[in-house]
């Protein structure tokens, strides 16, 4: 089943609506909230991973937009500064989904699809070579 990541923006007054519930109940989509910052009275933001049937995506997203949310394909990304990185590998030790890993030659690799944007690597990197764009 297709899986996609979306960047959702909630208008200030919309924060209380249970949109995630409706995505599950009405559109049979499986949501995985990767990051969320939603507070009453403020514009909220959520990085949401959705798994479901192809047709359900379009309907689910149309529903979100009807509810006043702005939806775009997620642009969040982990950025690795190769100039700073010394390839020590410490980031791989704190990356629970193993999105960051060392290959057979001990070169550092990043599998974006596995990343859950927890920022553990950002905090761990002794060279401050990793930043998160969200």
């Amino acid at each position: 089943m297709p899986r996609k990541r979306f960047d959702l923006r909630f208008p200030p007054r919309q924060a209380a609506k249970p949109v995630i519930y409706h995505l599950v109940k009405d559109y049979d989509l499986t949501p995985n909230i990767l990051r969320a910052q939603i507070e009453p009275g403020q514009q909220g933001r959520m990085l949401l991973e959705l798994t479901g049937r192809k047709e359900a995506f379009a309907d689910g997203l149309a529903f979100l937009e009807r509810e006043g949310l702005t939806v775009s394909e997620a642009a969040a990304d982990i950025c690795l500064d190769d100039e700073k990185c010394v390839v020590c590998g410490l980031c791989t030790a704190v990356c629970k989904p193993q999105a960051l890993y060392l290959d057979d030659d001990f070169a550092l690799k990043f599998d974006k699809d596995k990343c859950v944007y927890c920022e553990a690597c950002v905090i761990a990197c002794p060279r401050r070579a990793i930043t998160l764009r969200f």
Binding site: V87, C88, G89, L90, T92, A93, Q98, Y101, L102, F106
Partner: peptide
């Protein structure tokens, strides 16, 4: 290998010393 066993548990392990360097 990136994984060791500690007290019967599988534990992911990472280096701090750079092998490529």
């Amino acid at each position: 290998t990136g994984e060791i066993e500690v007290d019967g548990r599988k534990v992911p392990v990472g280096p701090i010393s750079s092998l490529p360097a």
